[in-house]
């Protein structure tokens, strides 16, 4: 049976996931690996179903935390990116600090946030924000600062103000960069919020996994990991679709003329 390329592209990721799960299951069964070391997918699934209620509750909490942190990161990141991208002096002044800050492992920063805001949701939101705003800044700035000089000359010779150039050309031009960064940022935001929940919280998927592992309930820990992974893929897909929809002109394919 021959599959059309479209169907094949659709099926490929599902088949590969299934294959990995089957191998995993076979290894766990075949070598009789203890569930508290490495639970088999079927067991993870079973435990996940049994505890679906609490898992969903914690997952929803983590999702909200992540989305709030991500939204702040997008707003702050886009604004900073515009500043950095449109002014060389701000670029020079701000870049070392941004890079330096981005090099700090955010997990080292969580205790500081806990001292300031207490244990719970606020540090998780802030960690999600701190970890995910950097790619947005870099991409928006790159989109703005790589404007063709001839194009700028055309507009300036018409009497366009800096704001005109930003609105008519700079921002639309940096949209593909911006959406590409959103895909990176949303997955990073999950890393941030779950990390903070693991260290200092009493709600969320991170906390759930932490308490499950302290009682050696490995199937539940893995169920938590799965849920985070699935949420990450879903959010990534949302932004990938949004990107294709809004900046389709940037992916013009092979039939480009120039």
């Amino acid at each position: 049976m021959k599959l059309s390329p479209k169907v094949r592209d659709r099926l490929a990721p599902w088949l590969l996931t299934l294959l990995v799960l089957v191998c995993w299951e076979a290894i766990c069964q075949g070598f009789s690996i203890q569930p508290f070391l490495m639970p088999a997918p079927t067991l993870i699934f079973k435990v996940g179903l049994e505890l679906a209620g609490p898992i969903m509750e914690h997952a929803t909490h983590t999702l909200m935390t992540t989305l709030i942190g991500f939204a702040v990161a997008v707003a702050v990141g886009a604004l900073l990116g515009m500043l950095v991208g449109s002014s060389p002096i701000i670029y020079k002044a701000l870049y070392p600090m941004l890079v330096g800050f981005n090099s700090i492992p955010k997990v080292a920063f969580v205790p500081v946030l806990v001292v300031w805001f207490g244990i719970g949701t606020v540090p998780a939101i802030l960690t999600a924000f701190l970890i995910s705003f950097f790619p947005v800044v870099v991409n928006v700035a790159a989109g703005l600062s790589t404007l063709e000089p001839e194009l700028e000359d055309v507009l300036r010779s018409l009497g366009a103000s800096k704001l005109d150039i930003l609105i008519k050309v700079g921002l639309p031009r940096s949209m593909p960069f911006f959406f590409a960064s959103l895909k990176v940022a949303i997955t990073l935001a999950f890393v941030g919020s779950v990390m903070s929940e693991t260290v200092a919280s009493n709600v969320g998927i991170g906390y759930l996994m932490m308490s499950a592992s302290s009682s050696m309930n490995m199937p539940l820990v893995f169920a938590g990991l799965f849920v985070i992974g699935v949420m990450g893929v879903m959010m990534y897909e949302v932004f990938a679709r949004l990107e294709r929809h809004i900046t389709g002109w940037a992916n013009r394919g092979q039939n480009a003329a120039m």
């Binding site: 063709e148 194009l151 055309v154 010779s157 018409l158 009497g159 366009a160 639309p172 013009r252």
Partner: peptide
Amino acid sequence: GGPLSIVGMAFQAANLLPW
């Protein structure tokens, strides 16, 4: 003394906006 609106310009690269 500054940009003139009575001027039109075109360059070697067409520089059309792809969006």
